[in-house]
Design a protein around this nucleic acid. Structure first.
Lengths: 150, 150
DNA sequence: CAATGTTTGATTGTGCACAATCATTTTTGT
DNA sequence: ACAAAAATGATTGTGCACAATCAAACATTG
């Protein structure tokens, strides 16, 4: 006999359901969609919301630092930040001490959004029905994967 | 006294590092980047690769079915599939029995890519240093989240 | 059968995401 | 001081991703 038990036949490796990558791709997009109704009333997109998370904490950051934290390059950030500048949420200005750097600084209209956003994380978390221990292991594994991939 | 232990001060909820959403967003993009060098030699993008995973398994699917599996709408799929059609990887044709449906069928050039792609999943998995039990719980949690979010 | 509603893709417009390239500024080595 | 190298953003071009709208084909109901 010697039929292999469940050896993952060569083709099975290429089935969508057996991929680890696809659930990440799908969950990431569905999560963004879950935020959308909350962010829409504030007039901002999900990547813009991530920029705000950093600015609400640090008040001021260079494009370089934003890119390092968010793992985004200037080709993504520059137009995104220009749109946020147009809405008076932040200012873009060169660092006088190093004219290569562009400093992104929170403006009052951007600061004002913080209090309207502070309930969003819990609203989203509630939708996922994760127990605290599940959430902990999930956080740990995501962090581990991110370090492996960067 | 009565200082709360680590009550997650209101502001902490809005710190990037405390978000669950960001790791998903970041891991998803970094995973796509990890695939990129392997997919580039085949001339395809990550979403196109996902379409192929389904076509290699099913040979023929409607746009509707592709969208249901991948959680993508026609605004994303139609131009993507047209690019894949131009490369002779697949054909797009109306179903004679229901003219609303468009049938996507694998063509020889698309079938030929399968054997060149079958090692990719393991190459990526190897980069992540996950133990089999870690991988199992991760799969389970991702699946759980996806059902919660859809 | 005719009117109504539903299903299915296509189209349009906006906003990322990223590779590749370029220009400017700063730093470093001599 | 000066040339070479590195750092930092901006720009350009391609390809998703998705909301909103539209059009055609099918199904349903009276």
């Amino acid at each position: 006999m010697a039929t292999t038990p469940t050896p993952a036949a060569p083709n099975d490796l290429l089935k969508l359901e057996n991929q680890l990558c696809f659930p990440f791709y799908a969950v990431s997009r569905q999560l963004t969609k879950a935020y959308q109704p909350y962010l829409q009333v504030l007039g901002l997109t999900y990547p813009q919301y991530l920029v705000f998370l950093l600015l609400w904490e640090h008040e001021q950051l260079t494009v370089k630092e934003l890119g390092k934290q968010l793992l985004l390059d200037s080709g993504t950030l520059t137009p995104l930040l220009k749109r946020m500048e147009q809405k008076q949420w932040l200012s873009r200005s060169r660092d006088p001490r190093d004219e290569r750097s562009v400093i992104i600084a929170l403006r009052p209209a951007g600061r004002a959004l913080e209090s309207q956003a502070c309930d969003i994380p819990n609203q989203i978390l509630a939708k996922m029905n994760l127990t605290p221990p599940e959430l902990d292991t999930l956080r740990a594994q995501l962090h581990h994967m991110l370090t492996q991939l960067t």
